[in-house]
Amino acid sequence: MADSSRPIGARPLSPHLQVWRWHVTLAASILHRAAGVAIYAGILMLAGWAYALHAGAGAFAAYTGVLASTPGLVVLFLITLALLFHLANGVRHLVWDVGFGFATKTADATAWGAFAFALVANVGLWLALAASGKL
């Protein structure tokens, strides 16, 4: 813990990203952050949707046209994947915050669970979109 001989001002440093051995909890941790950034981009796109809708039929058609293009759909697919992962992993964090799930095996299992949930739910969502002819 705190070393009392350390001079005030020399702040503790957390170990840097590249010194860690890879394991699933590490992947879940850093991807939680990356997913958060992707979702923020998604929120800006959602605000853009509201702006286009307010701007009128032409602007809305142009905006949704970009979203419905192949690159647009790839971006949306990745954003819903990020959202579903961040959601599942966020629940994992909230459970930790009330004091449960810290055992190594549990933490590993829930990390895999968050990845599995995100993949399955996202593929399911997009298959349902495709099946109902909305794409």
Binding site: T64, T80, L129, K134, L135
Partner: peptide
């Protein structure tokens, strides 16, 4: 997510 699913491909008037 549910709303996005419902509105997808719906167009201007639907939105």
């Amino acid at each position: 997510l549910w709303s996005g699913y419902r509105l997808a491909g719906g167009g201007y008037e639907t939105a």
